[in-house]
Design a binder for these strands. Structure first.
Lengths: 207, 207, 207, 207
DNA sequence: GATGAATGAGTCTTCATTCAT
DNA sequence: CATGAATGAAGACTCATTCAT
């Protein structure tokens, strides 16, 4: 999806520096709100030098999005039929929660993009992401049919996992404003809560 | 919270027109991304006329935020001890879900603001909102003590309700990109899903 | 081809001021070479104010071209069968020469544009201009058939009139560098020369 | 006119490559419009390498102009008293016409420069060129005195030859837009036309 | 000789805000 | 009340030129 040409060491390093700085800036300001000056400052490079490595502000942003999107979906891809279904799903939720703790900027980058209508990754959503989600929903439907998990709408289950976990990254300031936690301490409580929430939701009941 | 002077009918109407237009624009573009031109166009007024009613772009935005925040929290305020605890909580979730369906712009306005660090409503969050949430958490802790709902962290429960319901407004394009729903049809499924999710989570179990 | 909206007096005046300044600048610097700063300075307006009246530098330039092109071709349109053919053609040449003397900037504006490949008026050339020229060439062919002017290629005759007359505007500095004329004195010599040149070329001979 | 240092073969070749590329670019974009990137691309060299061979963009341009100006005037220098005066002059015109066909970029390079006020070759025009033209005008005046050509203003005759012949290079797109010729076919018609035009203009008449 | 890297000085354009009427 | 006119400040992007290797 990018950068075919061979790169020198300096190029590689500077491109990474720029993308790191861009992540910092774009995740807290939206695309329109971010300025090249901010990114240049964060990267410790001059503004024209930024544009020596990337053709435009837009190019930096889309490169960032497409680079991250791929790894962003890895946890969902890893969800498969190899283990206990309930453990698998809860494990997925906990992995997502860890990502909200460890990579909140990435989460907010996508949140910003999607809240504003996903003008630059709608294709990715309607294509690859949709396909992936449908696949995993099918897998869950199998589990339901086999009686291994409760009967529950798989798509909305996935949405609820995304929503509840990413909330701790995207609405970070709100969570902190209310809980006033000590560092990341509240993430353990969140993990316990989500584990309980989804275990109860997924455990089949005799009726 | 504002506008102390007496207002003529025209003034009142125009202020409302402007705020409605501002909601439209600010909710899909962030504060920095929105322009007075867009708002003026949406309001059908001239740009200087906007600034006759509000001192600045910032003033329009903050007025909008504070006006809406109040009504935005009404459903939570309405949560009280008068009914069956589980029904109360699920009712709250469903009311929030309705708001995501009927007032998605308001939801996205706050989402944008908070994702970007809530630079203009942090005070509201750390003050009134925090107090309100703590109150309701106390209420829930009572219910838990009385054995009326399962033992579950009240704060994270509230977060999970916010997250799962607002998701349908804030991440609207993603939900639609994946489900390709017919109009708002998927909201019924979401309601059923969330009802089940929270009922199971809240129903006390014998151990 | 432009400006449909009603204009206030100030708008009209300022648009004209800008176009006049733009003519001054674009005729001596090419499109790329001209800057909005130069035009703004020449117009006595601020740079953003220029862009209040015209959406872009390009818009100023194309408005100028299309406004002028029309009147620029008037002399050729006026060439008709009403008078003595030879007098008509020589009259046309002399009128063009006058225009080179009185409106050299307009001539150079088109010269610049065409020398650089006419990127913005090629359509006008291949459409309306071509049609007009073909019409007048037909008229001349009639005159030839009637024995009223010598047998000569009408298209190349028109080219030679354009070339010899516009030369005094477009290559003005060269002409002046060589002749070192007193003011516009050399235009009379040019008129006499061209009159003789074309009279001899057009007068039918007995063979 | 430049380059005093001894040059290696590579240097010579590269300088020529650069000048050839510069001719290509400068003749269709004006000085300001052309970029070193375009020239570097056309030359197949890196931008800094260009500036290894020439001190600046300006230096490339002026070198090009002065190198070409010399050979550009050769046809006029060749005009002398050795043959039949009318044939000499017509021959000169036809040679100029050939140059417009075979070296249109050189013609447009000078056209661009002169239309824009000849900021870089005014000295050449007012010095050597003026002297040369005056010389040839004297020669023609001799011919007129001897009754060998018609009484006609020599300077304006020279201008008209330049104008009519260079027109086919400088206004190439216009000529082609109107005639829609097959390749260079129209140059033969132009040659015939100009031969007739100048023969009639120059042939002495009995009155 | 050659080139990747870097930048200061522009250049067009946008936009919130002010002014005058 | 309302708006046409105007602008300072900022922002994205360009480009000739320099530097270091």
């Amino acid at each position: 999806m990018n950068a075919e040409q061979p790169q020198t060491r300096i190029q590689k390093k500077n491109r990474e520096t720029i993308l790191e700085a861009a992540l910092e800036v774009f995740s807290s300001e939206s695309f329109r709100g971010a300025t090249l000056d901010q990114i240049a400052l964060a990267a410790g490079l001059s503004k024209p030098n930024l544009l020596y490595y990337f053709p435009s502000k837009e190019a930096i942003y889309t490169e960032l999005l497409s680079t991250l999107l791929d790894t962003w979906l890895d946890p969902l891809r890893a969800l498969d039929g190899s283990g206990d279904p309930i453990d698998e799903i809860i494990g997925y939720a906990l992995r997502k929660l860890e990502m909200s703790r460890d990579f909140p900027r990435e989460s907010r980058l996508f949140a910003n993009e999607i809240v504003q209508g996903a003008p630059r990754i709608l294709d990715q959503i309607e294509g690859p992401l949709r396909t992936l989600v449908d696949q995993k929903a099918d897998l869950m439907r199998h589990w339901i049919a086999e009686g291994k998990i409760a009967e529950i709408d798989p798509h909305h289950l996935i949405f609820s996992i995304w929503a509840t976990t990413q909330h701790y990254a995207d609405f970070n300031v709100q969570v902190r404003g209310i809980l006033r936690p000590d560092g990341d301490a509240h993430f353990d409580d969140a993990a316990a809560f989500l584990t309980a929430l989804f275990r109860r939701a997924l455990t089949p009941r005799p009726d």
